[in-house]
């Protein structure tokens, strides 16, 4: 009897948590497909009209371009910088290695708004007023810890014997690295890449200080839209971004396995 009650309690708790976690995404999805301007549940009639509105809105088109461009700059650059750093920290004994280790993590503990104000002060002094440049630099700094952590966790598991075997068989250091070491770092690169991509697309607190008049990113445009209008256009954007997140989850699960994710962050 006691066992039954406890199992029932766990089941109810698990179901409630599942509902709590997924409810905002699910209802946003429903809202994005509803015909009506105001949300009502159950949805009266479905339509794609808000998708049409979303794709035709210049401000969302521009923001999507800007966000995509930012991601194209930041993700590869950040991963490359992180790869160099993780390699040096894992393979090279140098004085102050521990200091570097903790230095890299420092952007993680600084609140987003503080980082935003700090970069704004810096760029005002440097007279740098192009939003994309300002955001690219800030995002690389903010995302570096995620990428380095994901790669450092991966470096521990790299088999150095294979690398040495490749060297013994006549491969140069670069070839050995590219053919033997780098493929083993795929999980770390993928995990790091996912975190950086998500952070770049989603960041609001830092970027809101750094955008210029025509370089708004998606979260910023979404915020302005929610503030000024009451319609499901942002629900469309949310749904599309959730679909992107779902794709990332599926790909990640296929390639590396979801359970690895909790070890890198």
């Amino acid at each position: 009897m006691n066992r039954l009650v406890s199992r029932l309690l766990w089941t109810v708790f698990g179901a409630a948590m599942l509902l709590f976690l997924l409810a905002p995404t699910l209802f946003t999805l429903l809202y994005s497909f509803s015909e009506a301007r105001y949300f009502s549940f159950p949805v009266q009639s479905y339509s794609l009209r808000w998708y049409v509105t979303f794709f035709n809105a210049t401000k969302f088109q521009k923001a999507a371009m800007e966000t995509g461009l930012l991601a194209l700059i930041v993700v590869p650059c950040c991963l490359a910088a992180a790869l160099c750093t993780a390699h040096a920290v894992a393979r090279w004994e140098f004085p102050g290695r521990r200091l570097v280790d903790s230095l890299i993590l420092s952007p993680l503990i600084v609140p987003g708004v503080v980082t935003g104000v700090a970069f704004l002060s810096l760029f005002r002094i440097l007279n740098q007023d192009i939003g994309l440049v300002r955001m690219s630099i800030a995002m690389m700094v903010v995302c570096l810890p995620y990428a380095v952590r994901a790669l450092s966790a991966n470096y521990g598991g790299v088999d150095r014997a294979t690398e040495e075997a490749a060297r013994d068989l006549g491969a140069g250091p670069l070839l050995a690295y590219l053919k033997v070491t780098l493929p083993q770092l795929k999980p770390g690169l993928l995990a790091g890449g996912v975190f950086v991509l998500v952070e770049v697309i989603d960041n609001f607190a830092v970027n809101v200080f750094l955008v210029d008049l025509d370089s708004n990113t998606l979260p910023i445009v979404a915020y302005q839209h929610i503030r000024d209008f009451d319609d499901p256009v942002v629900a469309v954007m949310s749904t599309l971004l959730s679909a992107l997140a779902l794709t990332l989850v599926v790909v990640f699960n296929r390639v590396v396995g979801l359970e690895k994710l909790s070890q890198t962050r």
Binding site: T25, T28, Y31, I226, M237, L241, S242
Partner: peptide, 22 residues
């Protein structure tokens, strides 16, 4: 549960704030 958690984790803060607004 793990999938729901990771999906929530990856689907942006503005999106979720908006979901709760609805």
């Amino acid at each position: 549960l793990l999938g729901a958690l990771v999906l929530t984790f990856l689907s942006g803060s503005i999106n979720r704030a908006y979901g709760w607004l609805i």
